[in-house]
Amino acid sequence: MADVLFDRSVYVGVMVLLAIGLYGMLAKRNLAKKLVGMVIFQTAIYLFFIQGAAQMGATVPVIEQDLGVDADTYVNPLPHLLILTALVVGVGVLGVALSFLLRIYRRHGTFDEDRIAADLAAEEIEGHTVDDHDADDHDDAEEARS
């Protein structure tokens, strides 16, 4: 009975972490908090892959002369390298997300979703277009005049 509990507990832990990350991305109204939720979601996926590579009675996939080259002695190396590259790509994703966040902050002065939505609605009423490209051109014209 205890064995069954242990065998499945890693899955339960990973799924709970996935749910926490998803809740952060859905429910938090602060955009930076959404990013924190995204990072938690990402790490849960990495964990899911790495636990799939583990094998009972196997060791790190660096071949040791004394242990021989029997495949049962070493854990599965394939998920490791998939996650190795995914980790670095994760930093790229975070960087692009932060760049968007900084631009949103520069334009609206807040990370709060509701206030950004209100801001955008106010712009529409004033006759400004919400379209990013047009708004930029408008800015440029203003800068040139001043």
Partner: peptide, 12 residues
């Protein structure tokens, strides 16, 4: 919020 949008704020 008072800021009306289009011109982007200078950061403090």
């Amino acid at each position: 919020m008072a800021h009306g949008g289009a011109p982007e704020r200078e950061l403090p």
